[in-house]
Design a protein around this nucleic acid. Structure first.
Lengths: 302, 302
DNA sequence: AGATGCTGTTTGATATATAGCTACAATGAG
DNA sequence: CTCATTGTAGCTATATATCAAACAGCATCT
């Protein structure tokens, strides 16, 4: 951790600034002019800095200034520090303005087609100065390598990742079937009854042939697919039963094309995480975007 | 370049330090205790910092302190800045002490066996606290990848490199043959006569069959080897003629095992460069080592 | 609910450090 | 050798920072 102790009451920052300037223009008098102060000021400030550091930074003869080796190394570091300070300031500025610039985002396929599409539409309207580049896809990709600023992941359990993740919202699951299917097949009263039905499997599920209802129920079925919208279509066509996340089936439920059964069974929830590369410093625009997301999902109450 | 302008006369550094501490312990009172000052100090300093930045960094209720999002981002940057400041200070310290720590060095084979071996012997004696790890080899290696702090390269012309290079010294070349060889073969009066002799070729030469004497002379011979000490051995055995850098043939010349011919021909010089990775900041020990090298070669006048 | 024990902030008196002036010393150019 | 110019040192007025104590807001405990 940072363990610096306040040393002197001197204004080290200003001293460093002056030192950098001095190294640049190589004249006490010129530095004094630039800063609208007297040359004795500069002289004192530099001397004080040297005294505090315990090393001579710049060798002065009345006619020539020359950096010592130590001073040379210190100069580089000093410049870097001043730059970092400036960056910190501009970070604050940017955080207070509307975000702008490019934002490259990775979004899971189905979520991108459904809820996140609406969300990003609002986002673009709210922040017209942001140029979005959206990549839809379910592959595991390396955000850093591919140059993504932001990515999303839906998961029913916490997961390891080399990225920083913020939970955005939670989705529920629904066991869905079409009314026609239910009418023409044996009645389902408990999760165990599912074993006699055509239960679709999602390819990316952790455990095959097992639905996470209550303590897990064994299922079998004639379809295994890696896209829940495809699965939804099969369900709408009265072919069988599927477990779908809320965002995939919400519309179909509202239209009555499918119905949610086994509503009282225990089901996991699906958390949506926003991920961003663990760069040393997160750009203001990314943080602002995540804020927007969280507010958006909270407001829409989905 | 660094273009920060002195803004207020406030001591920003101290304010930042206090802010970081405050974010850590989350209590104005505790920070005040740690710094042996009053809590009003801390309060003012933080307020001033916020005023200067134009943003609230930490939200305070009497019972709870909570970083704002802006504050969160600023905190990270502030910590980094303080660390950098500490690094700059320790750089100064280290530069004034005898160098210490590990130093991993890459050295060309023959140079390492000859001059640099002597140099490093002296270096180790002068700086017993440095742990040297020396790799002898002529391969083109990536200093950064292999974790080298320092490397050497001898070259007769300036070269591109992604590393920072400091010229350490210069070596001359000698056209060498054994006295016996010269006595038993046609006399050599000018560089052109070499075409009738067995001239050895160094594998890494830029242009094959061409020695860089005067404007370049064509040669032929029965040996091509990538190690000049091997070549020297062949010369000592009266087998032919070779162009050798000073450090390779100095001893043999002194012993009279070989002689230097064509002394008035134009020959290139061979500059020895110390290379170090273009890291943002060069460790003090590396700079000190290079200083030692330059002094050593200047003193020994080689 | 009300009192109490913490917080962080504000205020005003005192002490400290700072800036700028002037004079001085050192150096390199003509 | 002289002179102009540069960086340094000493001094005083001013400005600034510091601390103590009173103030105000919140949470907890009885």
């Amino acid at each position: 951790m940072v363990e610096t102790i306040i040393k002197e009451s001197m204004n080290k920052l200003r001293a460093i600034e002056m030192f950098v300037k001095l190294a640049e223009v190589r004249s006490f008098t010129r530095v004094a002019e630039q800063y609208n102060t007297s040359k004795s000021m500069i002289s004192k400030e530099i001397s004080r800095l040297e005294a505090e550091l315990g090393a001579r930074l710049i060798h002065r003869t009345t006619r020539n200034l020359q950096l010592t080796h130590v001073g040379e190394g210190y100069l580089q570091r000093a410049k870097d520090i001043l730059n970092k300070l400036e960056d910190a300031d501009t970070f604050i500025q940017e955080s207070q303005q509307a975000p702008k610039g490019k934002l490259k985002v990775n979004v899971p396929m189905v979520l991108g087609i459904t809820d996140l599409a609406a969300m990003f539409a609002d986002f673009m309207q709210a922040y017209p100065d942001v140029d979005l580049e959206i990549h839809l896809g379910d592959e595991d990709i390396d955000l850093v390598e591919q140059g993504f600023d932001l990515g999303f992941r839906a998961s029913s359990r916490p997961f390891d990742s080399s990225y920083i993740g913020k939970e955005i919202t939670q989705f529920s699951y629904h066991v869905c079937a079409s009314p026609q299917y239910l009418a023409s097949h044996p009645v389902i009263e408990s999760a165990q009854d599912l074993i006699h039905h055509n239960c679709f499997e999602y390819s990316y599920s952790k455990r095959k042939n097992l639905w996470p209802l209550d303590k897990g129920v064994r299922i079998k079925g004639s379809l295994k697919v890696n896209n829940v919208l495809f699965m939804l279509q099969a369900i709408k066509s009265h072919l069988g039963i599927g477990v779908l996340p809320e965002f995939a089936c919400r519309e179909a439920l509202e239209k009555g094309e499918v119905v949610s059964i086994l509503q009282h069974a225990d089901k996991p929830t699906l958390a949506l995480y926003a991920l961003y590369p663990a760069r040393q410093f997160v750009p203001a625009a990314v943080l602002q975007c995540i804020d927007f997301l969280q507010v958006w999902f909270k407001r829409d109450g989905r």
